[in-house]
Computed example of a mutant assay.
Amino acid sequence: MRHIHIDNVEPGQFLGRTIFSGKGAILLSENVQLTVYMITTLKRIGVTMIYIKDPQFEDVEIADVVPEETKRAVMQRMGETFETIRSGKELNTRSINGSIDNLLEEIMKNKEVLVQLSDIRTEDNEMYVHAMNVCMMSVMVGIHMGLPMNQLRELAIGALLHDIGKIDALVDDESDDLRKHHTWRGFELLKNKRELSLLIAHVALQHHERIDGEGLPRRIPGEQIHLYAKITAVADRYDNLLFNLSTGRRMQPHEACEHIMALAGSQLDRDIVIHFLRTVSVYPTGASVRLSTRETAVVVGQHRGLPGRPVVRVIQSDWSERDLDVKEIDLAQHTTVFIDNVIV
């Protein structure tokens, strides 16, 4: 399959990855043949990039850290939890707790897989997919740092619920009253839950604090920010750089990684950034790239230790031709060949 911009999708092509609603329901299933109406609707609901099936790359599969069924279950539980808050009822985190155990089990099984954020975003599912991604990346960093399972579990719940304050009716991030900031509202929602560690509430409170003490809501210096919040801050920033439907700005993974590196030591914890960059795919599988050889290629494989040097399949002819001369280059072995840019 290939990862392409929605403007380049043509009627008759087949969807490569299932698209979910905000609460985990299926909007469009993998393998559905796309129509003009479907493509137009996807654009309308905010989709910018999708995966499509391609006979030339039918053997290319994306290795997921968390399978789709587990993601759906967690998103469904999150939807139920958030609806409870919106309706003014008491927050019950038991369903979230149960889903986290399954999520952690899957991540531990696939901890050597580089993270690729392959879920398709819509205006409806953005909050849920963002929370899932931040949770998944945070846990991967925690594993890389050697955190024990009890701490990984706290980190996972905190990262999953880091933006829970955004659904509070009193939230106003533009207000001068910092107690209306979504971080503070999230803390207020979580701090008195006996089934949750207070550290989980501090993830919601501190994930927008900065190492240099210029963050929100309390402008505390780096040594006062909890480790879980520092980890979540890196994952949150990265995901927002890649996908931000509200602003319309979107970076490619390699650009976002460079941006994250530039923030290390000032806004973000330097050691955590180093661990983070070892867990994410700089050039995701399915992405089209231009090589320093002036050839066009598609990323078809990854290296755990060298995320910036993937395996690419070079296309020698026009995409529309059927008799294509195809070759693969392992950039970890061919050190004089580089990726010049990603083709969107």
Rank of each mutant, 00 (worst) to 15 (best):
K191H: 06
N244H: 05
G215A: 00
R250T: 10
A256R: 09
Y228P: 09
R194G: 14
A235N: 08
Q252T: 14
L245W: 03
E223D: 15
Y228Q: 07
R194A: 13
L268S: 02
K230R: 13
M251E: 14
Y238S: 05
P217G: 00
H226T: 11
R218W: 01
R210L: 03
P221Y: 00
Y228W: 12
F187A: 09
L196I: 09
D212E: 07
A262G: 10
D236W: 07
R278I: 00
G248T: 04
G213L: 04
L268M: 08
E255A: 13
K193F: 07
C257A: 15
L189S: 14
L268E: 05
G186W: 06
D239I: 11
E195N: 15
K191T: 12
E214G: 03
I220N: 01
V273D: 07
D271G: 05
S246M: 09
V273W: 05
H259M: 13
L198K: 13
L263F: 06
S197I: 00
F276T: 06
R237V: 04
R218Q: 07
H226N: 15
R237C: 08
M251P: 05
T279P: 08
G213R: 04
R185D: 14
E214L: 08
F187P: 12
Y228G: 02
L263E: 11
I225A: 00
I200L: 06
G215L: 01
R219I: 00
I272L: 09
A235G: 11
K230P: 13
E258K: 12
E214K: 10
R278T: 03
Q206R: 02
N240F: 05
G265P: 10
E195Q: 14
I272P: 10
G213S: 02
D269P: 11
T247C: 01
H207S: 03
I260N: 03
D236K: 10
F243W: 11
H275R: 11
M261K: 15
L245N: 14
K230G: 06
I231D: 03
G186A: 06
S246C: 01
H207C: 06
L196E: 10
I211Y: 07
L199G: 04
L277V: 05
R219H: 09
D239C: 12
R210A: 01
L277F: 06
Q206W: 00
A229N: 02
D239Y: 08
